[in-house]
Computed example of a mutant assay.
Amino acid sequence: MYNDLISFIKNWYKTDEYIPLHEPRFDETDKKYLLDAVDSTFVSSVGKYVDQFERGVSTYLGVKRAVATVNGTAALQVALRLAGVKKGDEVITQPLTFIATANAIAYNRATPIFVDVNRETLGLCPDALDNFLRNNAQERGGKTFNKISGKQISAVVPMHTFGHPCKMSQIKNIAQKWNISVVEDAAESLGSKLSDKHCGTYGELGVLSFNGNKIVTCGGGGAIVTNNDSLADMAKHLTTTAKVAHPWEYVHDEIGYNYRMPNLNAALANAQIGKLDVFLADKRDLANSYKDFFSTREWGEFFNEPSQCRSNYWLNAVITKDRYGRDTLLKATNNAGVMTRPVWQLISDLDMYKNCQKGDLKNARWLQERIVNLPSSARINEQG
Protein backbone atom coordinates (compact mmCIF):
# COMPACT_ATOMS: atom_id res chain seq x y z
CA MET A 1 0.00 0.00 0.00
CA TYR A 2 2.90 2.35 0.70
CA ASN A 3 5.05 1.54 -2.34
CA ASP A 4 3.69 4.52 -4.26
CA LEU A 5 4.69 6.86 -1.42
CA ILE A 6 8.18 5.36 -1.29
CA SER A 7 8.52 5.78 -5.06
CA PHE A 8 7.26 9.36 -4.87
CA ILE A 9 9.85 10.30 -2.25
CA LYS A 10 12.72 8.62 -4.09
CA ASN A 11 11.73 10.29 -7.32
CA TRP A 12 11.54 13.68 -5.60
CA TYR A 13 15.08 13.36 -4.28
CA LYS A 14 16.27 11.50 -7.39
CA THR A 15 18.04 8.75 -5.50
CA ASP A 16 17.74 5.11 -4.56
CA GLU A 17 20.06 5.66 -1.63
CA TYR A 18 18.93 6.06 1.98
CA ILE A 19 16.77 9.17 2.40
CA PRO A 20 17.05 10.89 5.82
CA LEU A 21 14.27 12.84 7.48
CA HIS A 22 15.86 16.27 7.29
CA GLU A 23 19.51 16.73 6.40
CA PRO A 24 21.39 20.03 6.05
CA ARG A 25 22.42 21.42 2.66
CA PHE A 26 25.87 22.95 2.26
CA ASP A 27 27.75 24.43 -0.69
CA GLU A 28 30.95 26.34 -1.40
CA THR A 29 29.62 29.49 0.28
CA ASP A 30 29.39 27.67 3.59
CA LYS A 31 32.99 26.44 3.24
CA LYS A 32 34.20 29.92 2.34
CA TYR A 33 32.68 31.49 5.45
CA LEU A 34 34.05 28.74 7.68
CA LEU A 35 37.57 29.06 6.28
CA ASP A 36 37.44 32.82 6.75
CA ALA A 37 36.54 32.34 10.43
CA VAL A 38 39.38 29.85 10.86
CA ASP A 39 41.88 32.18 9.18
CA SER A 40 40.78 35.03 11.45
CA THR A 41 41.66 32.88 14.52
CA PHE A 42 38.46 34.17 16.17
CA VAL A 43 36.65 30.87 16.50
CA SER A 44 35.13 31.23 19.98
CA SER A 45 32.38 33.59 21.19
CA VAL A 46 34.08 36.78 20.01
CA GLY A 47 34.18 37.60 16.29
CA LYS A 48 32.55 39.52 13.51
CA TYR A 49 30.29 36.67 12.41
CA VAL A 50 28.45 36.52 15.73
CA ASP A 51 27.51 40.20 15.49
CA GLN A 52 26.71 39.88 11.80
CA PHE A 53 24.45 36.89 12.40
CA GLU A 54 22.56 38.65 15.17
CA ARG A 55 21.92 41.62 12.88
CA GLY A 56 20.83 39.30 10.08
CA VAL A 57 18.34 37.41 12.27
CA SER A 58 16.82 40.57 13.76
CA THR A 59 16.50 42.17 10.32
CA TYR A 60 14.88 39.06 8.83
CA LEU A 61 12.34 38.78 11.64
CA GLY A 62 11.73 42.52 11.93
CA VAL A 63 12.67 42.72 15.60
CA LYS A 64 15.08 45.07 17.36
CA ARG A 65 17.47 42.52 18.76
CA ALA A 66 18.72 38.96 18.46
CA VAL A 67 21.21 37.38 20.87
CA ALA A 68 22.98 34.30 19.52
CA THR A 69 23.39 31.33 21.85
CA VAL A 70 25.08 27.95 21.76
CA ASN A 71 21.77 26.14 21.14
CA GLY A 72 18.01 26.62 21.27
CA THR A 73 17.60 24.95 24.66
CA ALA A 74 20.04 27.41 26.24
CA ALA A 75 18.17 30.26 24.56
CA LEU A 76 14.87 29.09 26.05
CA GLN A 77 16.36 28.60 29.50
CA VAL A 78 17.70 32.16 29.56
CA ALA A 79 14.57 33.64 27.98
CA LEU A 80 12.45 32.11 30.73
CA ARG A 81 14.74 33.58 33.37
CA LEU A 82 14.48 36.98 31.69
CA ALA A 83 10.70 36.62 31.66
CA GLY A 84 10.74 36.35 35.45
CA VAL A 85 10.55 32.59 35.93
CA LYS A 86 12.19 31.69 39.23
CA LYS A 87 12.70 28.72 41.50
CA GLY A 88 9.40 27.21 42.59
CA ASP A 89 7.30 28.82 39.84
CA GLU A 90 5.12 26.99 37.34
CA VAL A 91 5.14 27.43 33.56
CA ILE A 92 2.34 26.31 31.24
CA THR A 93 3.32 24.56 28.03
CA GLN A 94 2.14 21.79 25.72
CA PRO A 95 2.81 18.05 26.03
CA LEU A 96 3.30 17.56 22.28
CA THR A 97 6.75 19.07 21.88
CA PHE A 98 10.44 18.22 21.94
CA ILE A 99 11.85 17.50 25.41
CA ALA A 100 13.88 20.74 25.41
CA THR A 101 10.74 22.82 25.97
CA ALA A 102 10.09 21.19 29.34
CA ASN A 103 13.77 20.81 30.24
CA ALA A 104 14.38 24.55 29.87
CA ILE A 105 11.62 25.13 32.41
CA ALA A 106 13.17 22.61 34.79
CA TYR A 107 16.63 24.18 34.38
CA ASN A 108 15.14 27.28 35.99
CA ARG A 109 13.98 25.05 38.86
CA ALA A 110 10.39 25.66 37.85
CA THR A 111 7.71 23.06 37.09
CA PRO A 112 5.84 22.61 33.80
CA ILE A 113 2.06 22.36 33.59
CA PHE A 114 0.83 20.59 30.47
CA VAL A 115 -2.19 21.94 28.56
CA ASP A 116 -3.63 20.40 25.41
CA VAL A 117 -2.90 21.28 21.79
CA ASN A 118 -5.46 21.68 19.04
CA ARG A 119 -5.63 19.65 15.86
CA GLU A 120 -5.65 22.68 13.57
CA THR A 121 -2.16 23.87 14.52
CA LEU A 122 -0.62 20.98 16.54
CA GLY A 123 0.38 23.69 19.04
CA LEU A 124 -0.94 25.03 22.32
CA CYS A 125 -4.73 25.37 22.27
CA PRO A 126 -6.03 28.79 23.42
CA ASP A 127 -9.33 27.30 24.60
CA ALA A 128 -7.53 24.67 26.67
CA LEU A 129 -5.27 27.37 28.13
CA ASP A 130 -8.24 29.58 28.98
CA ASN A 131 -10.17 26.70 30.55
CA PHE A 132 -7.20 25.62 32.64
CA LEU A 133 -6.61 29.10 34.03
CA ARG A 134 -10.28 29.79 34.76
CA ASN A 135 -10.61 26.49 36.63
CA ASN A 136 -7.25 26.37 38.38
CA ALA A 137 -5.83 29.87 38.76
CA GLN A 138 -6.48 32.96 40.82
CA GLU A 139 -5.00 36.44 40.71
CA ARG A 140 -3.44 38.04 43.77
CA GLY A 141 -1.56 41.30 43.78
CA GLY A 142 -1.16 41.40 40.01
CA LYS A 143 0.23 37.87 39.86
CA THR A 144 -1.38 34.55 38.99
CA PHE A 145 -1.27 31.59 41.36
CA ASN A 146 -2.27 27.96 41.03
CA LYS A 147 -5.17 27.25 43.42
CA ILE A 148 -4.05 23.63 43.80
CA SER A 149 -0.30 24.02 44.35
CA GLY A 150 -0.27 27.59 45.61
CA LYS A 151 2.67 28.36 43.31
CA GLN A 152 2.94 31.30 40.94
CA ILE A 153 2.25 30.64 37.27
CA SER A 154 4.77 33.01 35.75
CA ALA A 155 4.91 32.14 32.04
CA VAL A 156 3.37 30.25 29.16
CA VAL A 157 5.44 28.64 26.41
CA PRO A 158 3.64 27.82 23.14
CA MET A 159 5.69 25.83 20.62
CA HIS A 160 5.12 26.00 16.85
CA THR A 161 5.11 22.29 16.07
CA PHE A 162 6.89 21.32 12.83
CA GLY A 163 6.90 25.02 11.92
CA HIS A 164 3.11 25.48 11.97
CA PRO A 165 2.14 28.65 13.87
CA CYS A 166 0.09 28.47 17.05
CA LYS A 167 -2.87 30.80 17.52
CA MET A 168 -0.63 33.43 19.03
CA SER A 169 -3.04 36.37 19.17
CA GLN A 170 -5.50 34.41 21.31
CA ILE A 171 -2.75 32.93 23.49
CA LYS A 172 -1.22 36.35 24.03
CA ASN A 173 -4.57 37.91 24.96
CA ILE A 174 -5.26 35.19 27.53
CA ALA A 175 -1.77 35.52 29.01
CA GLN A 176 -2.12 39.31 29.29
CA LYS A 177 -5.45 38.90 31.07
CA TRP A 178 -3.73 36.77 33.70
CA ASN A 179 -0.46 38.79 33.83
CA ILE A 180 1.54 35.82 32.58
CA SER A 181 4.60 36.29 30.36
CA VAL A 182 4.67 34.70 26.89
CA VAL A 183 7.93 33.09 25.79
CA GLU A 184 7.61 31.74 22.25
CA ASP A 185 9.37 28.49 21.43
CA ALA A 186 9.97 29.13 17.73
CA ALA A 187 12.79 26.58 17.50
CA GLU A 188 11.15 24.84 14.53
CA SER A 189 9.49 27.79 12.84
CA LEU A 190 12.12 30.10 11.35
CA GLY A 191 10.45 31.64 8.29
CA SER A 192 6.90 30.79 9.37
CA LYS A 193 4.36 33.58 9.62
CA LEU A 194 0.96 34.15 11.16
CA SER A 195 -0.92 37.04 9.52
CA ASP A 196 2.35 38.29 7.98
CA LYS A 197 4.08 38.43 11.37
CA HIS A 198 7.01 36.10 11.98
CA CYS A 199 6.80 33.34 14.55
CA GLY A 200 9.00 34.19 17.51
CA THR A 201 7.96 37.85 17.52
CA TYR A 202 4.53 37.64 19.22
CA GLY A 203 5.78 37.14 22.77
CA GLU A 204 8.01 39.56 24.63
CA LEU A 205 10.73 36.97 24.04
CA GLY A 206 11.11 34.33 21.37
CA VAL A 207 13.71 31.64 20.81
CA LEU A 208 15.12 29.99 17.69
CA SER A 209 17.20 26.87 17.06
CA PHE A 210 19.87 26.27 14.43
CA ASN A 211 20.49 22.62 15.27
CA GLY A 212 21.77 20.25 12.59
CA ASN A 213 18.26 19.23 11.55
CA LYS A 214 16.81 22.73 11.24
CA ILE A 215 16.22 24.68 8.00
CA VAL A 216 19.15 26.97 8.76
CA THR A 217 21.88 25.21 10.70
CA CYS A 218 25.33 25.83 12.07
CA GLY A 219 25.68 22.46 13.76
CA GLY A 220 24.24 23.81 17.00
CA GLY A 221 23.16 27.31 17.79
CA GLY A 222 20.15 29.24 18.95
CA ALA A 223 18.97 32.79 19.48
CA ILE A 224 16.82 34.91 21.78
CA VAL A 225 14.82 37.55 19.91
CA THR A 226 13.02 40.53 21.39
CA ASN A 227 11.98 44.15 20.84
CA ASN A 228 13.03 45.01 24.38
CA ASP A 229 16.57 46.43 24.45
CA SER A 230 16.92 45.95 28.19
CA LEU A 231 16.04 42.26 27.96
CA ALA A 232 18.41 41.82 25.01
CA ASP A 233 21.24 43.48 26.91
CA MET A 234 20.60 41.23 29.91
CA ALA A 235 20.42 38.17 27.65
CA LYS A 236 23.82 38.98 26.19
CA HIS A 237 25.24 39.61 29.67
CA LEU A 238 23.90 36.38 31.17
CA THR A 239 25.01 34.24 28.23
CA THR A 240 28.53 35.71 28.44
CA THR A 241 29.07 34.40 32.00
CA ALA A 242 27.70 37.68 33.42
CA LYS A 243 31.12 39.26 32.92
CA VAL A 244 31.29 43.00 33.51
CA ALA A 245 32.95 44.77 30.58
CA HIS A 246 36.52 45.77 31.41
CA PRO A 247 39.76 45.93 29.38
CA TRP A 248 41.47 43.31 31.55
CA GLU A 249 39.73 42.55 34.85
CA TYR A 250 37.54 39.46 35.33
CA VAL A 251 34.54 40.60 37.32
CA HIS A 252 31.22 38.71 37.20
CA ASP A 253 28.24 40.30 38.92
CA GLU A 254 25.90 37.28 39.10
CA ILE A 255 25.66 33.63 38.13
CA GLY A 256 25.65 33.57 34.34
CA TYR A 257 26.14 30.98 31.61
CA ASN A 258 28.78 30.19 29.01
CA TYR A 259 26.07 30.13 26.34
CA ARG A 260 27.25 32.44 23.56
CA MET A 261 27.41 31.12 20.00
CA PRO A 262 31.04 30.61 18.85
CA ASN A 263 32.19 32.69 15.90
CA LEU A 264 32.97 29.50 13.95
CA ASN A 265 29.35 28.39 14.15
CA ALA A 266 28.15 31.91 13.40
CA ALA A 267 30.19 31.95 10.19
CA LEU A 268 28.32 28.89 8.95
CA ALA A 269 25.03 30.36 10.16
CA ASN A 270 25.61 33.53 8.14
CA ALA A 271 26.17 31.53 4.98
CA GLN A 272 23.07 29.46 5.67
CA ILE A 273 20.67 32.28 6.44
CA GLY A 274 21.52 33.88 3.11
CA LYS A 275 19.89 30.83 1.48
CA LEU A 276 16.85 30.70 3.73
CA ASP A 277 14.36 31.96 1.15
CA VAL A 278 15.58 29.36 -1.35
CA PHE A 279 15.22 26.62 1.26
CA LEU A 280 11.71 27.78 2.11
CA ALA A 281 10.62 27.88 -1.53
CA ASP A 282 11.82 24.35 -2.19
CA LYS A 283 10.23 23.02 0.99
CA ARG A 284 6.92 24.62 0.01
CA ASP A 285 7.14 22.90 -3.38
CA LEU A 286 7.63 19.59 -1.59
CA ALA A 287 4.72 20.25 0.77
CA ASN A 288 2.42 21.05 -2.14
CA SER A 289 3.50 17.86 -3.88
CA TYR A 290 2.82 15.83 -0.75
CA LYS A 291 -0.57 17.52 -0.50
CA ASP A 292 -1.43 16.49 -4.05
CA PHE A 293 -0.18 12.96 -3.41
CA PHE A 294 -2.30 12.45 -0.30
CA SER A 295 -5.41 14.03 -1.80
CA THR A 296 -6.11 10.68 -3.48
CA ARG A 297 -5.11 8.43 -0.57
CA GLU A 298 -7.62 7.34 2.02
CA TRP A 299 -5.08 5.94 4.49
CA GLY A 300 -3.49 9.26 5.37
CA GLU A 301 -4.25 12.99 5.44
CA PHE A 302 -1.47 15.48 4.80
CA PHE A 303 -1.19 18.11 7.52
CA ASN A 304 -1.59 21.46 5.82
CA GLU A 305 -0.62 24.87 7.22
CA PRO A 306 -3.29 26.46 9.47
CA SER A 307 -5.53 29.18 8.10
CA GLN A 308 -4.03 32.69 7.83
CA CYS A 309 -0.58 31.14 8.19
CA ARG A 310 2.42 30.58 5.97
CA SER A 311 4.34 27.68 7.44
CA ASN A 312 7.95 26.83 6.74
CA TYR A 313 7.00 23.13 6.53
CA TRP A 314 10.10 22.24 8.51
CA LEU A 315 8.84 18.68 8.89
CA ASN A 316 5.98 17.45 6.74
CA ALA A 317 3.45 15.24 8.48
CA VAL A 318 0.71 12.82 7.54
CA ILE A 319 -2.13 11.90 9.90
CA THR A 320 -2.98 8.20 9.62
CA LYS A 321 -6.33 6.70 10.53
CA ASP A 322 -5.13 5.00 13.70
CA ARG A 323 -2.10 3.65 15.58
CA TYR A 324 -1.97 0.55 13.38
CA GLY A 325 -1.81 2.69 10.24
CA ARG A 326 0.95 4.79 11.80
CA ASP A 327 3.05 1.77 12.74
CA THR A 328 2.67 -0.05 9.43
CA LEU A 329 3.65 3.11 7.53
CA LEU A 330 6.70 3.60 9.74
CA LYS A 331 7.80 0.02 9.24
CA ALA A 332 7.29 -0.04 5.45
CA THR A 333 9.12 3.22 4.76
CA ASN A 334 12.05 2.68 7.10
CA ASN A 335 12.54 -0.86 5.77
CA ALA A 336 12.73 0.65 2.27
CA GLY A 337 15.46 3.13 3.24
CA VAL A 338 13.12 6.10 3.58
CA MET A 339 13.37 7.61 7.04
CA THR A 340 10.07 8.48 8.69
CA ARG A 341 9.37 8.90 12.38
CA PRO A 342 6.46 9.20 14.80
CA VAL A 343 5.88 12.36 16.77
CA TRP A 344 7.56 12.59 20.18
CA GLN A 345 6.16 10.71 23.13
CA LEU A 346 4.09 13.14 25.16
CA ILE A 347 6.40 14.93 27.60
CA SER A 348 3.75 14.60 30.28
CA ASP A 349 4.12 10.79 30.13
CA LEU A 350 7.90 10.70 30.63
CA ASP A 351 9.12 9.61 34.05
CA MET A 352 10.55 12.98 35.06
CA TYR A 353 7.37 14.89 34.22
CA LYS A 354 4.56 12.37 34.68
CA ASN A 355 3.59 13.78 38.09
CA CYS A 356 3.23 17.34 36.79
CA GLN A 357 -0.23 18.88 36.68
CA LYS A 358 -1.99 18.52 33.36
CA GLY A 359 -5.27 19.31 31.71
CA ASP A 360 -7.33 17.04 29.48
CA LEU A 361 -4.82 16.03 26.79
CA LYS A 362 -7.22 14.26 24.42
CA ASN A 363 -6.01 16.05 21.26
CA ALA A 364 -2.34 15.47 22.04
CA ARG A 365 -2.99 11.78 22.65
CA TRP A 366 -5.06 11.47 19.48
CA LEU A 367 -2.28 13.05 17.42
CA GLN A 368 0.46 11.00 19.06
CA GLU A 369 -1.28 7.84 17.87
CA ARG A 370 -1.44 9.01 14.24
CA ILE A 371 1.35 11.40 13.20
CA VAL A 372 4.13 10.30 10.88
CA ASN A 373 6.83 12.76 9.77
CA LEU A 374 8.01 12.43 6.17
CA PRO A 375 11.36 13.32 4.54
CA SER A 376 11.48 17.10 4.32
CA SER A 377 15.00 18.13 3.23
CA ALA A 378 15.41 20.99 0.79
CA ARG A 379 17.09 20.26 -2.55
CA ILE A 380 19.35 23.31 -2.67
CA ASN A 381 22.27 21.34 -4.12
CA GLU A 382 20.29 20.82 -7.33
CA GLN A 383 19.83 24.56 -7.69
CA GLY A 384 23.44 25.54 -7.32
Rank of each mutant, 00 (worst) to 15 (best):
T144D: 10
A137H: 02
E120Q: 07
A137V: 03
T121A: 05
N131A: 14
I148R: 14
V157A: 08
T111M: 07
Q152P: 08
P126N: 06
G141R: 04
C125G: 15
G142S: 01
L122M: 00
G150C: 07
R109T: 15
C125R: 04
S149I: 04
C125E: 11
D127E: 15
N136R: 02
I153T: 07
P158V: 00
N108Y: 04
P112L: 01
A137S: 11
R134I: 09
G141D: 05
Q152G: 09
A110Q: 00
V115Y: 04
K151A: 08
A155T: 06
D127F: 14
R119D: 15
S154Q: 03
S154T: 04
S149Y: 06
Q152H: 08
P126V: 03
R134W: 06
S154N: 05
N131Y: 10
A137M: 06
L129F: 02
I148C: 11
E120F: 10
G123T: 06
D116G: 15
D116N: 13
P126F: 02
T111F: 12
D130Y: 01
L122A: 07
A137Q: 08
S154H: 01
L133F: 11
R109Q: 15
F114K: 03
N108D: 09
P126M: 01
L129C: 13
A155V: 02
F114M: 07
N131I: 12
F132H: 11
P158R: 00
F132Q: 12
Q138T: 11
C125T: 14
V157K: 01
V115P: 09
F145D: 11
F114H: 12
L133P: 10
A110D: 06
D116I: 03
I148Q: 13
A137T: 07
K147Y: 05
S154W: 01
V117N: 12
V115T: 10
N135C: 13
N135A: 15
T121M: 02
G123C: 12
P126I: 02
R134T: 13
L133K: 04
G150H: 02
Q152L: 08
F114C: 15
P112C: 03
N131P: 09
L133V: 04
Q138N: 12
K143P: 08
R134P: 09
R109F: 08
A155M: 00
N118C: 05
N146K: 11
F114R: 05
C125D: 15
T111L: 06
G123S: 13
N146E: 09
E120N: 08
G142Y: 00
I153V: 03
L133Q: 01
P158M: 00
A137G: 10
G141Y: 08
Q138L: 07
K147M: 10
A110N: 05
L124I: 08
A110G: 13
R140L: 14
G123E: 14
L129Q: 07
R140I: 13
N136S: 14
G150R: 03
E139M: 03
A110T: 06
N131S: 14
C125L: 01
L133C: 04
E139H: 05
